[in-house]
């Protein structure tokens, strides 16, 4: 067989860019932070109650950035309203569900925070549960919106929502640890959060990191043993073009280094716990980059 070479083709854009990867990270970190906010009021772990408002406000602020990002990412920003009008709403479009979730989730967080401020345990618990379900659903949707594209071989896997949720859990905890640590630096001794919480949350992260590594291993297996496009997606797109966000940022910086820190004696030092938390939060953003941009890369040549 002689050689064959493509001499001319029309090229195509990668339709969803960095904005979408930032949005995925923000929603994930928001959901993760909110889970911590609910530890005290919903799950009854009383020592986390002082953290509630800090975690809740962090989650709300991060989620409030999302509509700005997404609306200005639209070709016709003013038409975002179409996503909420029944005559336009398309029930099978993942983005249609996502819009509802993104609207309902911050509202439920605000209601939950209101009852926390009112010290109303019953309603705080009820709305906390509602908000947690919405938080998880909102982040589940970000995985699904990429998954339900059968033509995008790297994204078309049922592992996507799980990967996104696990990433949300660990990045949310990581971000909260960093925020708590920074807050403690500027507060008097009696107003500081208990530093033991940082160590405890860091130990929660270990389970998430191990599960994330397991999921990424499953994804690796699927691509390496997959069809030609999946193999190409792994060997060329992830291991060559997206090598930095995939291998270094996600795997090494975001998972293995924090894991080593958190299973070593360093986990008992504040520097170790906070460094691991920061690395996890950054590493999860690396995953969002290769998942969004890398998944669309190969097809732009077709």
């Amino acid at each position: 067989m002689g050689e064959s070479i493509v001499t001319y083709n029309a090229f195509h854009h990668v339709a969803w860019g960095t904005t979408i990867s930032v949005y995925f990270w923000l929603v994930g970190a928001s959901a993760g932070s909110f889970v911590i906010s609910c530890f005290g009021w919903v799950f009854g772990i009383k020592r986390y109650k002082p953290l509630t408002m800090t975690a809740s406000v962090t989650a709300i602020i991060m989620l409030l950035l999302v509509p700005f990002l997404l609306t200005w990412d639209l070709g016709k920003p003013i038409r975002f309203i179409y996503l909420l009008i029944p005559g336009y709403w398309h029930s099978t479009g993942p983005m249609a569900w996502g819009t509802l979730l993104i609207c309902l989730y911050p509202m439920s967080m605000v209601v939950y925070s209101y009852f926390v401020l009112q010290n109303n345990q019953t309603f705080a618990k009820v709305f906390g549960i509602v908000a947690i379900v919405l938080a998880l659903s909102t982040h589940w949707y970000t995985g699904v919106v990429m998954e339900l594209n059968p033509g995008r071989f790297l994204n078309h896997t049922a592992l996507a929502p799980l990967l996104f949720l696990t990433g949300a859990f660990i990045s949310g905890i990581g971000l909260m640890n960093v925020i708590v640590w920074i807050r403690n630096l500027f507060r008097s001794e009696e107003n500081k959060f208990d530093p033991a919480l940082i160590f405890e949350m860091a130990s929660f992260m270990v389970y998430g990191i191990v599960f994330d590594i397991f999921l990424l291993f499953l994804d690796f297996m699927q691509t390496v043993y997959g069809n030609q496009n999946e193999v190409m997606g792994h060997t060329v797109v992830l291991m060559e073009i997206f090598r930095f966000p995939y291998l270094w940022l996600t795997m090494v910086i975001g998972l293995f280094v924090p894991l080593i820190i958190l299973v070593s004696p360093l986990k008992k030092t504040m520097t170790g716990a906070v460094t691991a938390s920061l690395l996890v939060a950054v590493g999860v953003y690396g995953m969002r980059i290769w998942w969004v941009l890398g998944g669309q890369y190969l097809q732009s040549f077709y």
Partner: peptide, 30 residues
């Protein structure tokens, strides 16, 4: 699909970068 990426002329590769340079914007991940 993979063949479109692996078997290209040098000119086609240059054209790809030109396309990304001159037709970018609009929040595409070029």
């Amino acid at each position: 699909e993979p063949h479109s990426y692996t078997n290209r002329t040098a000119q086609s590769k240059a054209e790809f970068n030109d396309f990304k340079e001159y037709h970018n914007g609009d929040a595409f991940a070029d």
